[in-house]
Computed example of a mutant assay.
Amino acid sequence: MSVVHLRLLFSFKHIGVTYPCTLVEWLDRVGQQPDPEMGLWVVKPDLHGCNEDAFCTVVHLDCLLCAAHLVPVFGHRFLPSGFKHQYSLDSFHAFFVNKYIDYHTFELLS
């Protein structure tokens, strides 16, 4: 299983059939095992190319299994005053994948 960040939801019609899709940014797993202190996997954006743009693709919505709860890896500095939570996915370089968020996610990721 892979973790992705949904960037855009859209659909298109082709020969009368509607295809619901999403533009996703892929996240790579950091390391070969969960973080030893937290017990959670760490993911970071899959960067490629000389300008290190995030690797994005279009996928059909049927390819998505469930939502994931990502907790930022904060580091040692405080967040600036007035930081808006909606910018979290673009502001942090790595995230913990919280497998304990609900029963179904725990069963899938354990």
Rank of each mutant, 00 (worst) to 15 (best):
M1L: 09
V4H: 05
H5P: 00
H5E: 13
L6E: 12
L8F: 11
F10Y: 13
F10G: 02
S11Q: 14
S11V: 01
K13T: 13
H14C: 07
I15L: 13
V17H: 11
V17K: 15
T18G: 04
T18E: 15
Y19E: 08
Y19T: 12
P20Q: 07
C21M: 12
T22Q: 09
T22R: 08
L23V: 15
L23P: 01
W26M: 02
W26Q: 03
D28T: 06
D28G: 04
R29D: 00
R29F: 05
Q32R: 13
Q32M: 10
Q33D: 10
P34V: 03
P36K: 07
E37P: 01
E37D: 15
M38K: 15
M38C: 05
G39K: 06
V42M: 05
K44N: 00
K44S: 02
D46V: 05
L47D: 04
L47G: 01
L47R: 12
C50H: 12
N51G: 03
E52M: 12
E52G: 01
D53S: 11
D53A: 08
D53C: 09
D53F: 09
F55D: 10
V58R: 05
V58A: 08
V59Y: 02
V59R: 14
H60Q: 13
L61W: 00
L61I: 08
C63K: 15
A67E: 13
A68I: 09
H69K: 15
H69P: 00
H69W: 10
L70F: 04
V71W: 04
F74E: 12
F74Q: 11
G75P: 05
H76Y: 06
H76M: 09
P80A: 01
P80T: 03
S81K: 14
G82H: 08
H85F: 08
Y87W: 14
S88G: 05
L89K: 04
L89I: 06
D90H: 04
D90N: 09
F95E: 03
F95R: 00
F96N: 02
N98K: 07
Y100S: 08
I101V: 14
Y103V: 08
Y103C: 12
H104Y: 11
T105L: 14
T105K: 01
E107L: 14
E107Q: 15
L108H: 11
L109P: 02
S110M: 10
